[in-house]
Amino acid sequence: MIKRGLIVFLIILSGPVTLSQTYIDLVTASYNYSPPASFEFSDQKTNIHNADISLTLPVPLKKDVVLLPGLSTTVNQLSLDPDSNGSTGVFKVGLQLGVRIPYANNWSGLHYLIPRISSALNEYRSGFQIATIQLFEKQKSPTATYGFGIYASEESYGWMLVPLASFYLKDPEDRYELRIFFPSRGDVNYRLSDQLRLGLYFDSLGSTHDLQSPQFGSSYVQRISNDLQAYLRFDLTPSLLLAVRAGYAFFRSYRVYDSRDTAGVSIANFFFNDNRTPLNQTVGDGFLFGVRFIYRYNFSD
């Protein structure tokens, strides 16, 4: 009963966990490096560093209800403008306050409230935000699920709404695994050997970070990036996994806007009647190289 109760969805930086999965990632940590990227109208360049850590500890209750407390943090480090004095670190730290509730006919619901602080390390401004995830998923077979829902996030410019569609499919012989969280994230991998898998990972969920600086005043950074990376994953043990990744960031930008310059509502980073004026020259697209560590709990253990 406890193992059944632990099979939960999680929408964390590593992506959702579905009812058909036989594991849950309790700890994930990753680091990405982007070689010197050019600014829009300048020959100067800046390195871009990104790191994230997420933790979760499912707590099974009665009748297969599972509490999902967790914590996630992300840090990006780069120069925001050719005239900036050094680099700026923007971060996001959030609590994951969730519950997974089983419903009738093999349906289950994931309900999350995510309070967080999203600001800058060396140019801090309050940056309080709140987000929610409402996801419903149906288990079609022991190795396949599908679902739908919505992600709503209070950003510095207004609200971001993301309609969600989730899909999970795994070969019964564990040759391949497909996990899609459209339009924000996706992961597909294929087993090359018992300890080695080849995969493709996509992440496009943007963020905003409040900023207070001599250069930009009271402002915020809007990060948009569509990261596509191929990876090799080494299963060092059944619970400890290491992936090395390489890929490209498409349509990437780190725009700075005045805190009073808002945009209302966006749908999955698409803006309507956006008349904001950026205060900086943003960096553009570029290559990504990274590494990811996972501590995994397998229900079959």
Rank of each mutant, 00 (worst) to 15 (best):
L161R: 05
N47L: 05
T132E: 15
F250S: 04
P214G: 13
H49L: 15
Q77M: 11
D171S: 06
Y168V: 00
L169P: 06
F251N: 15
D261P: 00
S253Q: 07
T18K: 00
L19H: 00
S156I: 08
Y31M: 10
G206F: 03
P35Q: 13
S213H: 09
S34T: 05
P172Q: 05
Y124I: 15
S166Q: 05
T28I: 10
N269A: 13
S42P: 07
V90Q: 04
L121W: 11
S266A: 13
F287N: 03
Y220R: 12
L68K: 08
Y254V: 09
R233P: 04
V93Q: 03
V8F: 06
S266N: 04
Y124Q: 11
G264K: 14
S204C: 13
G286P: 08
L55K: 05
L196Q: 11
V59M: 11
Q21A: 09
Q44L: 14
Y295R: 12
N226R: 14
S141F: 00
I2K: 09
R245I: 04
Y23N: 10
D64V: 00
E137I: 09
S225C: 12
V244L: 15
P16Y: 04
S141R: 11
A37K: 05
G147S: 06
S153M: 13
N298S: 14
P16V: 10
K140N: 14
D187G: 01
L95Y: 03
R252Y: 00
V27T: 01
G264L: 13
W159T: 14
R296L: 01
I101T: 01
K170W: 00
I117T: 12
Y220A: 09
I294D: 09
L55N: 05
R100E: 04
V221F: 02
L10G: 01
L57Q: 12
G70I: 08
T88C: 00
L61D: 06
L13M: 13
N298I: 11
L169T: 04
S38H: 03
K63P: 02
D194S: 11
L240H: 13
G94P: 02
F9C: 01
A165R: 07
I114R: 08
A230C: 12
H111V: 15
Q134L: 11
L67E: 07
S218F: 07
Y33D: 03
S126M: 07
L80I: 08
R175L: 14
G284N: 03
A144F: 09
M1I: 10
Y254P: 02
L67D: 02
Q21V: 04
G94V: 08
G186C: 00
